[in-house]
């Protein structure tokens, strides 16, 4: 990897280099500012915010707002904190990401290595699903969920997100597997491996980069989704909807420090996913576009 970056780096003069770094630092500060404000204010008692400077560091450090946001803040009518909703989100996002990724991988595998009549049309239609706006599918989706008896439940949300995500994951895996040599599949066929064995033993072990892409993409989209959660969540609303209810509640004092802490809690998992897998993300996006 380091060799590759050396190769692609354009050599520049000292002055240009300094300038570039200054610019980059400036941008970094600009983008980090909101995060700083959020973190700083989530660690202050409320009077420090209402009475003073939002940009200042806390004088009186406290984690009380975090505890409140997590376990006792008023969400809607119940003082439950965000905890149960966080759990809802996890219960929704994990199966939804797993199922849509596995389905995408299988679709990509079939569409590239087990071609059949009309496969390009099918792929075209799946691609098309990526461009359908959320709002259009709300009513038909509600009807289907109702018919299936999944309305207002976590399995219902999982289904919605899988259906919506499978177009993207199929696209990723299809393009990735298109560059995968078909001769390997043929060799495995002669060796006696069947459909799933080839997938499991030959294709999946080399699918790391694209799986990271698919997981990050699906995870952030599903975790951050508000519309489907608000529309179909019912009693099992995800974190995003709960955060909205926390922040938008019209009764009582606005506890900004608790809001900040809640917002960070809501963003934390996606942040974590990016930090852990981010470097594979770029690599995965690049794979296939440049032949190694």
């Amino acid at each position: 990897m380091s060799v590759a970056t050396q190769d692609t780096a354009v050599s520049t003069g000292r002055v240009t280099r300094t300038f570039i770094y200054l610019l980059l630092i400036l941008f970094a500060l600009f983008y980090l500012m909101p995060l700083f404000v959020m973190v700083a204010n989530s660690l202050k008692p409320l009077p420090e915010i209402t009475g003073g400077n939002m940009m200042a560091l806390p004088q009186d450090w406290t984690i009380e707002p975090w505890l409140q946001a997590w376990s006792s803040a008023q969400i809607g009518v119940e003082p439950t904190g965000l905890k149960p909703y966080f759990l809802n989100s996890v219960l929704m996002v994990v199966p939804a990401v797993a199922i849509s990724t596995v389905l995408g991988a299988l679709n990509g595998y079939v569409l590239t290595k087990w071609r059949f009549r009309g496969d390009s049309i099918l792929f075209g239609l799946m691609l098309f699903s990526c461009f359908i706006p959320f709002q259009i599918v709300l009513i038909p989706m509600a009807m289907i969920l109702g018919k299936l008896g999944l309305a207002g439940s976590i399995p219902g949300l999982v289904l919605v997100h899988v259906v919506y995500g499978v177009g993207f994951t199929t696209l990723y895996y299809r393009n990735y597997y298109a560059a995968f040599p078909t001769e390997l599949v043929r060799a495995a066929m002669i060796d006696g491996a069947g459909f799933f064995r080839i997938f499991w033993r030959i294709m999946l072990p080399v699918s790391g980069p694209i799986t990271v892409v698919s997981v990050i993409w699906q995870f952030t989209n599903i975790w951050n989704d508000f519309l489907f959660g608000a529309s179909f969540g019912g009693q099992s609303q995800p974190m995003t909807v709960a955060l909205n209810n926390l922040v938008q509640s019209s009764t009582g004092v606005k506890e900004y420090n608790v809001h900040f802490a809640g917002a960070i809690l809501a963003a934390l998992p996606t942040l974590l996913v990016y930090i852990v897998a981010g470097r594979y993300f770029v690599r995965g996006l690049m794979a296939g576009s440049v032949k190694g």
Partner: peptide, 12 residues
């Protein structure tokens, strides 16, 4: 048994 032009060795 077959030997392919690209050798088709399983990379993993």
């Amino acid at each position: 048994a077959m030997v392919f032009q690209s050798y088709a060795l399983y990379p993993n």
